[in-house]
């Protein structure tokens, strides 16, 4: 299979290949990066349509920078996380200027799945609602650390702050989440035992 070999390449190698005109590299990068770019944007914006716009815009910026990409300076994923974070921050600012914070209701999950699936959905909805109330930087740091699973140095590079500031943001963010979710333990399936 001629297209499988590219799957093993690093993001940077693929980006450079795309910059030289390799369409297969663009395909592999799209399949590899677009899903998490979209997921991260959705978590920050809580709006599926806006998140799609941001994902497309962030990927477009990646395509455009490809010919000028400097090898070894930054990881492709770090660069993309930074672009998505900044695009989402801009949109959230505009949203706040235009109207009060858009409280997008979580879509009700009425699929006939198992009870655990409904509970998982309830937990995600509660977490998203609590995250939405955090200040921007805290929310970004908490999401990058605890949902995207990145290391503190990576987050520091994305948010362009020091590692200690990341630790402080995530610690304060988690405390604020615990506070915001107070009283919902039982409802979310955490029994006292």
């Amino acid at each position: 299979m001629p297209f499988d070999a590219a799957d093993q390449d690093t993001d940077e190698a693929l980006l450079l290949a795309y910059g030289r005109g390799d369409a297969r590299a663009a395909r592999v990068l799209t399949l590899r990066l677009a899903p998490w770019v979209l997921a991260y944007a959705r978590r920050l914006l809580r709006d599926a349509a806006e998140a799609e716009d941001v994902a497309q815009e962030a990927m477009l910026r990646l395509w455009r920078i490809a010919p000028d990409w400097r090898t070894g300076e930054a990881k492709v994923t770090t660069w993309l996380y930074r672009v998505v974070t900044n695009l989402c921050t801009d949109r959230l600012r505009r949203r706040r200027r235009g109207a009060a914070l858009d409280e997008v209701p979580e879509p009700a999950d009425d699929s006939p799945g198992a009870e655990t699936r409904l509970q998982q959905a309830a937990r995600v909805a509660a977490l998203d609602a609590a995250l939405a109330r955090l200040p921007d930087r805290q929310r970004q740091a908490v999401i990058l650390r605890h949902i995207e699973g990145l290391s503190n140095p990576e987050i520091a590079a994305i948010l362009e702050i020091g590692t200690e500031a990341v630790e402080s943001l995530t610690a304060r963010g988690k405390r604020a989440l615990a506070q915001a979710l107070a009283g919902r333990r039982e409802e979310l399936g955490f029994d006292d035992d």
């Binding site: 899903p35 998490w36 979209l38 997921a39 959705r42 978590r43 599926a48 998982q120 959905a121 937990r123 995600v124 509660a126 977490l127 998203d128 605890h146 949902i147 699973g149 988690k174 989440l177 615990a178 506070q179 979710l181 107070a182 919902r184 333990r185 979310l188 955490f190």
Partner: peptide, 19 residues
């Protein structure tokens, strides 16, 4: 208030839900 273990369970639910 939720403890760290419980908040981690919420994060895990969020990680699992990836449209």
């Amino acid at each position: 208030r939720m403890n760290d273990h419980e908040i981690e369970a919420l994060f895990a639910a969020a990680r699992a839900e990836r449209a």
